[in-house]
Design a protein around this nucleic acid. Structure first.
Lengths: 231, 231
DNA sequence: AACAAAAGCGAGCAAATGTTCGCTTTTCTT
DNA sequence: AAGAAAAGCGAACATTTGCTCGCTTTTGTT
């Protein structure tokens, strides 16, 4: 029913974007006066992964610059070559994530005739990108409050956009008599929340030994059950 | 199919527990040397509601004691009569919430023969308690990281317990041939996450004018669809 | 090898933050 | 009404925290 797998998605991601850290470099090296791409991407990797680790342990606000310095092994002064202040760390992470997600997740791609197929593909793509950028999604979700108001609203809006995109496909499927769904809004909310579940509770699925492809399979099965898809 | 409503639940809550603020008083007045119940419950209400408000705006960590003082209109010294340090605020809120939830949510009540009915009741009860204690649930979910490790693990464990309780009823229903469910784990995760959705995204449902009872109705409909309940 | 530019360092500064304590005001009992 | 106890106050203190800047080390080019 769907011709995607995490394997192939991940290859696409690699060719399309490369890796997360050079993306960070590309988006920020100008204003930070970073010249050596090789050094800088390595440092970005080290710093941001440490930020993820410490934020995960006690939250971004509670993480001090001294914590970050000690844990990453980079001095205070050294750190500030890679961002100009603490809140900019969150902004950088958010901006890079949005950039990467937008590059490979095409909400408006509707080249199929079958709205159910479109829905499946939308869901699968989102699971795959959040699998690849698991820690980024988790971080942005948990620490969004550190951002400025307008940016927070951007995040809420893009969440809503995903739910709307799901809803749109369900309604379309219903109109075209592909399914019988009496509560499209609720089903859309349910599916969107299960997209978040994948990166918010990833430890649970690692523990259960369920990978992204298996999760997608479960999710698509639920789509059929919830929508009452006619075979 | 289910004889519960938020109306009746709320009445039970009031007779069983009274109100949130006197609960806070009862649990803490000894160690804080608070004598006047009347004054103290009013202050607790004022302080904790302000904590909810400020935490909601920028997070508990980012909220300073001066913010809390200014917004509540209580002096710094005055505040410290109602808790002994900042982290104790989170602990107090958490402890009171657990106490209230445990008092009126009985995970082990299985007096019915019908496991589907039991499942419905479990879900409805949880929606209702999280409706009543909406801000408490939201706060604890968002600020759990401020707590000590063992307490955080308590929270994770109780979340897992809810999912397990749901799963148990699904499996039971399947064994007794009430339904045909091929992915009980996934369905259990889905239902639990929709319980959280109610208090994490409450603004969405206020906006859509969907109340707790309507949400429960939607949820129970999904149970039927996901489990393939035989009529 | 020499030199300039980039990267890295960490003690030190200013501001912010949690908490205290001596004092005043309110409350309640007798 | 008087007095004692509880509640409330806010300036002051010690610590923490984000951040800078003069300096050293590393890197890459000629």
């Amino acid at each position: 029913m769907i011709n995607l797998s995490y394997e192939t998605f991940n290859q696409d991601f690699n060719t399309l974007i490369g890796d997360e850290w050079s993306c960070l470099f590309d988006l920020n090296h100008q204003k930070l006066n970073l010249k050596n791409r090789n050094i800088a991407t390595k440092k970005f990797k080290l710093i941001i992964e440490t930020v993820f680790k410490l934020s995960n342990e006690k939250g971004f606000q509670a993480m001090t610059m001294r914590d970050l310095s000690q844990e990453s092994g980079i001095s205070m002064g050294g750190l500030y070559k890679y961002f100009s202040n603490k809140t900019q760390i969150v902004e950088m992470i958010h901006a890079a994530m949005v950039h990467m997600a937008a590059t490979c997740l095409h909400l408006n791609d509707e080249h199929s005739e079958d709205p159910i197929f479109e829905l499946n593909e939308l869901l699968a793509r989102h699971i795959y990108i959040s699998e690849r950028l698991k820690k980024w999604f988790y971080f942005v979700f948990m620490e969004a409050k550190c951002l400025e108001r307008p940016l927070v609203e951007t995040i809420i809006a893009s969440e809503q956009a995903m739910e709307d995109a799901i809803l749109k496909r369900i309604v379309k499927a219903k109109q075209q008599n592909f399914c019988q769904c009496t509560n499209p809004d609720f089903v859309a909310a349910m599916l969107k929340v299960m997209l978040q579940e994948w990166y918010l509770k990833s430890w649970k699925y690692i523990q259960k030994d369920i990978n992204a492809d298996q999760y997608v399979a479960n999710l698509l099965l639920s789509v059929y059950q919830l929508l009452g898809v006619k075979s």
